[in-house]
Design a protein around this nucleic acid. Structure first.
Lengths: 183, 183
DNA sequence: TAATACTTTCAGAAATTTCTGAATATTCAA
DNA sequence: TTGAATATTCAGAAATTTCTGAAAGTATTA
């Protein structure tokens, strides 16, 4: 593989983005490279293409493994490991979401719950607890909901997304029906 | 205000989380403090409570202003600026989402579009473009959808969230009706 | 068993981000 | 105006994160 300007700009940008999604620049770039390359790449290939050390490649791949975003494959008569991105782009988005939930949201929810179990020592703490409860509920609602969406079939999810704010209409409709049934 | 252990643990944790949401630890902590404190705080109060320099507080507040997450208020006969968190927790989540879209997603979409406009120079680039198109479409779908959800009334949004994966049922139902109408 | 071909680890170097505090700017009352 | 009270800026210090490369580890073959 060669680093054409097109590929390079994509890989670089994905590196920057990576850090927003919970992993560092190198990890983002390695992943970008593997996503847009149909053939698996060896760790040496990756290091050369990105101009980074062999050790760094190893650490980056380890991280991507822990996110379950890459696959190791082999070639007959070749001892090297070859790496490939794993699953579709959609799978990737799901996995990033899932991992971040596990690593960030869950611990936060748990801390907030602990705080809410404590008795407020004064009016200030009572007010603080109210606000913390709001944050807790919002976070819990959103993650629960996101998780239930993840369990929807891709087609249904797609219908839902295409519907956009039109989903409001469908909800009104559903409410009317429920009201009739209740008669 | 005093930093009780309860408040301290919340503020610290929010600091850590902050960096995941696009701003640094201090900014997260300042915001946390303002959210759980009913009374507005002066920049000096904030610096003392968090044990950080006056300059750092100033920079943090500037950042929070740019995210439109704080408000400045005044007291008669007092020259100091007092700061308060702005809007509900829900507003805050919306604003963080909105800002991140502007600062991160939009530039990415624009780069991906540019790449897709280029002619692929060879089979490798053609494959890369296919994958990049997938990423582009996914990102665009999700952000468009998220934006249309933001325009929904809070009650409807709440209904939708409560519905969870049950939204699948409602969609099926809608499809059936549409089919009948088409007859 | 030893030699080879590769991968992983991790101490410290390099790069980046964040923070401090002195200097500067702003605002307002007298 | 001037001066007192406050806010902001920014160069460099401190802290943190990331990266390198030499050493150690692991398989495989001969």
């Amino acid at each position: 593989m060669r680093m054409t300007p097109m590929i390079e700009s994509f890989v670089c940008h994905f590196g920057e983005m990576g850090s927003r999604w919970g992993f560092n620049r190198t990890v983002g770039q390695i992943y970008a490279l593997l996503v847009i390359n149909q053939q698996p790449l060896s760790a040496n290939d990756i290091g050369e293409l990105l101009g980074i050390s062999r050790g760094n490649v190893s650490m980056g791949l380890k991280e991507l493994h822990s996110w379950q975003l890459v696959h190791t494959t082999h070639r007959p008569g070749d001892r090297k490991d070859y790496y490939q991105s794993r699953g579709s782009i959609w799978d990737m988005a799901n996995r990033v979401f899932e991992e971040r939930r596990k690593r960030e949201i869950d611990p936060t929810l748990s801390l907030l719950r602990d705080i809410l179990l404590d008795e407020a020592g004064n009016a200030e703490e009572a007010y603080a607890q109210e606000r913390i409860a709001e944050i807790h509920d919002l976070l819990e609602n959103i993650t629960d909901w996101a998780q239930s969406l993840q369990s929807l079939s891709p087609e249904k999810l797609n219908t839902l997304m295409k519907l956009g704010s039109g989903v409001g209409k469908v909800l009104e409709f559903k409410d009317k029906l429920m009201a009739k049934k209740a008669d």
